[in-house]
Design a protein around this nucleic acid. Structure first.
Lengths: 242, 242
DNA sequence: GTCTATATGTTGATAGAC
DNA sequence: GTCTATCAACATATAGAC
């Protein structure tokens, strides 16, 4: 983290690559490496807190080199946001994996949790940008996220009409899934401070994932996909009345 | 917002106030006004993105005056964080308002949603700080939030053992409530972009609040407190099985 | 495609007259 | 308690030799 001499060489070009392709490869490899380092620094410090010098240092390149590949800091930031969106979008496909609501929703929640685990830094950059007004990603939200959301709302409303789901507000329900799953990436510092641990182990994260799946499925009134030990059921008193 | 001449006079001192008290009043009033302006700028831009010049300008005071009241930017930032925590802590008392889990949980969710509505900027400063590692509030988390959480976990586990709640992981369930309720403050830019609206009206926010209450109560297997039109019930097929 | 040196602006913080 | 003038440090971005 505070390394004064990170080598950070990103996949050396092969010896026998022809000149054209080698240059293209260098560009591609340096860009990818810079993007990864930028994602980390933007996640840790935010757009304003991150300096091009910090990103370049982490990448093991001189600052001028960074500006050679990405003319301005904002260009680099935009590219990071777009990358994060593309991965989110791939995970979002899970929603269509099944026509059974419990299946589809559980699958989506698991995919989102896995993403929070695998790429928490991207989630943080995204969250940070939205908190500060989403000024640099209005187009992504309007042109890409919104259309996706509209189709899923139709899907959910259809499930409700067929009696497969409780009468939830579809939009609020989708926000629920996002808020919950991304919380484990964005707020991990708080989770660690309150749980007194350094970081969640793979096993603990999987347990938490199933806990979240169960919470979400109950919240929307979909029955559990596979009955775990005691996941979906109220202890013994069923639906209580006073 | 881009006003070049915000007056921003915070409650003028009364004419007949004795000199001592008047000076004290000036200090108190200026500090409070600066804290409010700082909260807004920190929320919009983050710790690094916010400059003392911006905060001072919004407060209608020269920058040197800000540094007279708050020696460093970090001092000011810390005070904002502490203020936000104190209000959060007051809302958290709602949890103890009833021994009935549905009552207590619904009340807490409503209090948290009301806070998100009334003071979204504070929530954003808090979220921003956690995303970037919570380095300036480790003590608040450890000394104040964690003890609060431990007692509520005991409470929830007790409800579960008495069969009043589904077998949820208490910690994850509390994170669920936080993630969900704070989402409507922190991510409002995304919500507005995706809903295509400027901002949620008071009525719309209240409807969303009840939707969230219903989701949370179902998620933890507590029965609804007061049966609304169709809030807590699965449409007609009850707990479905394939 | 790489990198040293530098131009130009902004930042947090202070000095010191009022 | 107020505020103008100022400073050293650091920011983004570029010039131009290699």
């Amino acid at each position: 983290m505070k390394s004064d001499d990170t080598p950070a060489v990103a996949t050396e070009p092969e010896a026998s690559t022809p000149p054209r392709r080698r240059k293209a490869h260098i560009r591609h490899s340096n860009e990818a490496h810079l993007l990864a380092c930028a994602e980390a620094v933007f996640a840790e410090r935010g757009l304003d807190g991150a300096s091009t010098a910090m990103i370049a240092e982490r990448a093991g390149l001189p600052k001028a080199n960074l500006h050679y590949y990405f003319p301005t800091k904002l260009d680099l930031y935009r590219r990071v946001l777009e990358d994060v969106f593309e991965e989110w979008h791939r995970a979002a496909d899970t929603f269509e994996s099944s026509d059974d609501p419990a299946d589809a929703i559980a699958g989506y929640v698991r995919a989102k949790m896995a993403l929070s685990r695998r790429r928490p830094l991207g989630s943080k950059v995204w969250a940070n940008e939205i908190i500060h007004g989403a000024t640099h990603m209005q187009d992504i939200l309007t042109d890409r996220v919104k259309p996706w959301m509209e189709t899923r709302i139709t899907m959910i409303d259809d499930w409700i009409e067929r009696g497969l789901l409780a009468r939830v507000d579809a939009r609020t329900f989708l926000f629920t899934i996002w808020a919950l799953t991304q919380h484990f990436a964005d707020f991990d510092a708080q989770i660690q401070a309150l749980a007194g641990k350094r970081a969640l182990s793979k096993k603990a994260f999987e347990a938490t994932t199933e806990e979240v799946v169960a919470l979400v499925l109950r919240a929307c009134g979909a029955s559990p996909v596979d009955a775990g030990d005691a996941s979906g059921a109220v202890a013994d008193s069923g639906t209580r009345r006073d």
